[in-house]
């Protein structure tokens, strides 16, 4: 059964829609009912990070093998990751408006990390579109992709040391560990992550097959 993960993703996300809204959550000040956004906002970021890692994986594979198929996969994964960052950022902004009072703040390292990540991906797409020679384009954008990804990971790792975070778990805020201990929430949160990662892989799979068909047609 090749399509198991597609069905699994649909079932898991449906499950999170039902239990995420109907299940019981801890009653907390400020967060109130918005705590349920944890089931939708955070898994999308996980899926985006997963897609970025897939993109890097194929970029490395391309540099080692010089097979154009891998480079197309890497580019497609970057596009899917970039697409996922849009719902991620909008749900985050809405949540921030409700709990912190603003849509966007530069005080928070996670938000800054996300902004830099989006800038890096935009730079990657611009770089790719500015080179016309196909072989050259594949090689150069793969190199930039790998370098930028490493710097992004470094940025996300060191930034919390530089500034306090408004996100739970950093800088004196109540940690998510507190809610994670709530077994009801864990029961929805973990399936949500798996569901969204599978869903992003499905989108990646479809987009990649279209891109591979295009590649084949161009070769003929």
């Amino acid at each position: 059964m090749k399509n198991w993960y597609k069905i699994l993703s649909v079932l898991l996300i449906l499950y999170t829609i039902f239990l995420g809204l109907l299940g019981s959550v801890p009653r907390l000040d400020i967060l109130n009912e918005t705590i349920r956004n944890l089931y939708y906002h955070v898994p999308i970021w996980f899926a985006m990070l997963f897609m970025m890692s897939v993109s890097i994986w194929y970029a490395i594979k391309y540099l080692l093998s010089s097979n154009a198929v891998h480079e197309v996969k890497s580019f497609t994964a970057a596009k899917v990751g970039f697409f996922l960052s849009i719902p991620g950022i909008i749900t985050g902004c809405l949540w921030a408006k409700f709990t912190w009072g603003t849509y966007w703040t530069f005080q928070d390292p996670k938000l800054n990390g996300v902004a830099i990540g989006i800038l890096i991906y935009m730079a990657y797409f611009i770089l790719r579109s500015s080179i016309t020679d196909e072989l050259k384009r594949a090689r150069i954008s793969a190199v930039y992709n790998i370098f930028a990804y490493v710097m992004l990971i470094v940025f996300i790792m060191i930034l919390p040391r530089l500034t306090d975070s408004l996100h739970p778990g950093n800088g004196g805020n109540p940690a998510f560990g507190k809610y994670d201990l709530d077994n009801n929430m864990r029961l929805v949160f973990y399936p949500a992550i798996i569901g969204w990662i599978c869903f992003s892989w499905w989108i990646f799979n479809v987009k990649n097959r279209i891109a591979q068909l295009n590649l084949k047609l161009n070769d003929q």
Binding site: V10, I13, L14, I17, F18, L21, L22
Partner: peptide, 13 residues
């Protein structure tokens, strides 16, 4: 709340 759940589920499906 069931209306909300139903709407979200239908859209996603």
């Amino acid at each position: 709340i069931y209306v909300v759940v139903a709407v979200m589920a239908v859209i996603f499906l």
